[in-house]
């Protein structure tokens, strides 16, 4: 289960790490929005440059970010192939049997690839440079205005933080059950599809039942320690905006303004 390191928090001491998680979340949202401004290649280069800069400032090795792409390669290849084959606009540049490839298809596909590259690397930088606990507090604070519309933002944040807390416990439990089933002769690596499905079932059923027990115990423990949903509580972990955060926020807004300007005047 060592491949679980994708997007995992890397506790480093850097400028990006010290930013308020709220700032980072907003920046991610701004970049995600900016990707869809039609500012052509100039725009994409500006955004990529911005991401490269934040990567350097976060002191995260580029290989870590590239690792995050690994599980997505199949999906991206699939997307690119479908796109190239389906879009039928522009000039025909290649034809073989029923396969017809147009120049606009290639261009559009390149755009999509770059967009994906930008979004994935930006979100990877966010999760790698922010402590999940602070990130949860950040999400809670950002969702707070929705509380006015009866959105249970505190409960949502509590659920996220409990989910994060229990990921290692559940992985441990999974390994325990797998070992227990292996010792009873279950083979997880080899066998026909039917046998493999049975093997997975032998893992899922006990995992579900232990998870349910865990949830019940946890609920009792929370209740016993005085947790009442929807009641006011204080927060141990609090966030504070710094001058740095305002500057980064300003840069983010300027970036979007620049891209909008590029989309109107430069192309």
């Amino acid at each position: 289960m060592n491949n679980f390191t994708i997007g995992k928090y890397l506790p480093l001491d850097s400028f990006v790490h010290k930013l308020d998680p709220r700032t980072k979340i907003i920046m991610l949202l701004l970049i995600m929005g900016a990707v869809f401004i039609k500012s052509g290649w100039i725009g994409y280069f500006i955004i990529l440059g911005f991401i490269a800069l934040s990567l350097i400032l976060s002191k995260i090795k580029i290989s870590y970010v590239l690792n995050a792409f690994k599980p997505l390669i199949m999906m991206m290849v699939f997307l690119i192939v479908i796109n190239v084959l389906v879009i039928k606009e522009g000039n025909l540049i290649f034809s073989y049997g029923f396969i017809k490839i147009y120049d606009k298809a290639i261009l559009d596909t390149l755009y999509i690839s770059v967009r994906l590259l930008i979004m994935i690397s930006a979100s990877t930088i966010l999760t790698m440079s922010s402590n999940p606990l602070d990130l949860t507090v950040g999400i809670e604070k950002l969702l707070k205005p929705l509380g006015r519309f009866n959105f249970p933002y505190e409960d949502v944040a509590m659920m996220i933080s409990i989910a994060l807390r229990f990921i290692p416990t559940i992985i441990e439990e999974t390994q325990k059950i797998m070992n227990a089933q292996r010792s009873r002769g279950v083979d997880y690596e080899e066998g026909k599809i039917k046998e493999k499905i049975q093997a997975v079932l032998s893992l899922i059923v006990p995992l579900f039942s232990t998870s349910l027990n865990m949830a019940e115990d946890l609920a009792s423990a929370m209740e016993a320690r005085g947790y009442i949903p929807q009641e006011p509580r204080t927060r141990y972990r609090d966030l504070k905006y710094n001058i740095k955060d305002y500057i980064v926020f300003l840069i983010g807004v300027l970036l979007v303004v620049l891209l909008v300007w590029v989309s109107y005047y430069a192309i």
Binding site: L133, I162, M214, D217, A221, M222, R225, T234
Partner: peptide
Amino acid sequence: DNQFIGSSVKDDIAFGLENKCI
């Protein structure tokens, strides 16, 4: 395991304090 609510030792101790609005 099942009564460890916080993500770290101090967060776990803090949980009850948060509920008490300290």
